[in-house]
């Protein structure tokens, strides 16, 4: 067995503009997805919008803060049209199985990315 992280990306502007019944429907779809895939889903969460994000940069690109440590800035690490909005951690025997689960993840304003979890021993 292997683990995969399914990253859910979506356009935040579309999310913000979505009427409450659409938001509620997507939430219901997520609950249904979790119930249907209870055997595979190890965990998962929705994230608050990227305007609540704080990034810490250690590569110096955020400017020198004078203290030598990472620079703390407001906003997501990478500015993209489709932002990371949530994730599921799933267990699967292989990529095909992980893709079969990922296909069912509701992502109405974007899509999902499947990444194998790297085990570091």
């Amino acid at each position: 067995m292997a683990q995969y992280l399914i990253l859910i990306y979506g356009d935040e502007t579309s999310w913000a503009a979505a009427p409450p019944e659409v938001v509620e429907r997507v939430h219901a779809e997520h609950r249904a997805f979790q119930a249907r895939n209870a055997g595979a889903v190890l965990g998962g969460n929705a994230l608050h919008r990227t305007d609540t994000a704080t990034s810490l940069r250690s590569d110096g690109s955020g400017g020198d803060n004078g203290a030598g440590g990472p620079t703390v800035t407001d906003g997501p690490f990478a500015e993209t049209k489709e932002a990371l909005g949530g994730y599921y951690l799933v267990e699967a025997t292989d990529l095909d199985e992980a893709i079969a689960v990922a296909r069912q993840v509701p992502a109405p304003f974007g899509g999902v990315e499947v990444r194998p979890i790297r085990v570091i021993d």
Partner: peptide
């Protein structure tokens, strides 16, 4: 190997 693309004939529906 890393993402574990299976060495398999896909099931009929795929």
């Amino acid at each position: 190997s890393t993402a574990r693309i299976p060495y398999r004939v896909p099931p009929a529906e795929e």
